[in-house]
């Protein structure tokens, strides 16, 4: 990992299309301004971690569990408490 210090209003450039600028520093919080091409997703790290965790949970689902859930859904729907409507 590259570690470097920046002051208020200074920036770093990543490649020739991404700029990260320090906009404010207050009470242990740093406000950053990020310029990047639309094709680059700029995301908070903890959200990516959570998305990975959910994907892993979905990838663990086997066909028989899905069939069991599907049967329960159909059952709920016939009793008028389904997820549709």
């Amino acid at each position: 990992m590259l570690v470097l210090s920046r002051k208020l209003d200074e920036d770093i450039r990543i490649g020739d299309q991404i700029i990260v600028r320090v906009l404010a520093v207050k009470d242990g919080q740093v406000k950053l301004g990020i310029e990047a091409p639309r094709s680059v997703q700029v995301l908070r790290g903890e959200l990516v971690d959570q998305a990975q965790k959910e994907n892993q949970a979905a990838a663990r689902v086997d066909r028989s569990s899905a069939a069991a859930v599907a049967a329960s859904l159909a059952d709920l729907r016939t009793r008028g408490k389904g997820t549709t409507e």
């Binding site: 959570q50 959910e54 949970a57 979905a58 899905a66 069991a68």
Partner: peptide
């Protein structure tokens, strides 16, 4: 949306955020 299905429908969730 991807679904984290558990055998029990009540424990099953879908990921609306991503």
């Amino acid at each position: 949306v991807l679904a984290a299905l558990k055998h029990d429908v009540e424990q099953s969730t879908v990921n609306l955020r991503s």
